[in-house]
């Protein structure tokens, strides 16, 4: 039963990632695209956790943690750039 649930969940999260990607493509403004990218990171974390459950391996956790960290820093840097025109103050 759990395998079925994980498969269904994988399909749902993949659809979610497609929707985020759609927003990333159409924009219309730069913050919209940053927001879409941020959501895409989160969808990827969800996908990785599900893959870990599907393949019964705890290794994917490390990748999920790394994406969480890098995604956060990336979002902040992009926002700072739009706010100030400069990243390092």
């Amino acid at each position: 039963m759990m395998a079925l649930a994980v498969d269904l969940a994988l399909a749902l999260v993949a659809a979610a990632a497609a929707l985020s990607f759609w927003r990333l493509l159409i924009g219309p403004s730069a913050p919209d695209r940053i927001l879409a990218l941020d959501t895409l990171y989160i969808n990827t974390i969800a996908l990785l956790i599900l893959l870990g459950l599907r393949l019964d391996s705890a290794l994917y956790f490390e990748a999920a943690l790394l994406i969480a960290v890098i995604g956060f820093v990336g979002t902040l840097a992009l926002c700072k750039y739009l706010l100030r025109g400069d990243i390092i103050e």
């Binding site: 649930a5 269904l8 979610a16 927001l35 989160i42 969800a46 599900l50």
Partner: peptide
């Protein structure tokens, strides 16, 4: 059963979040 429920609930909420991103009308609601 509990695990399946949690997984499906998580996936559905992730999906609804992205759905909101795709269909809500302006940046601040998105």
């Amino acid at each position: 059963a509990l695990l399946s429920l949690l997984i499906l609930a998580g996936a559905i909420f992730t999906f609804i979040g992205s759905l909101g991103l795709a269909r809500l009308p302006d940046f601040f609601t998105r």
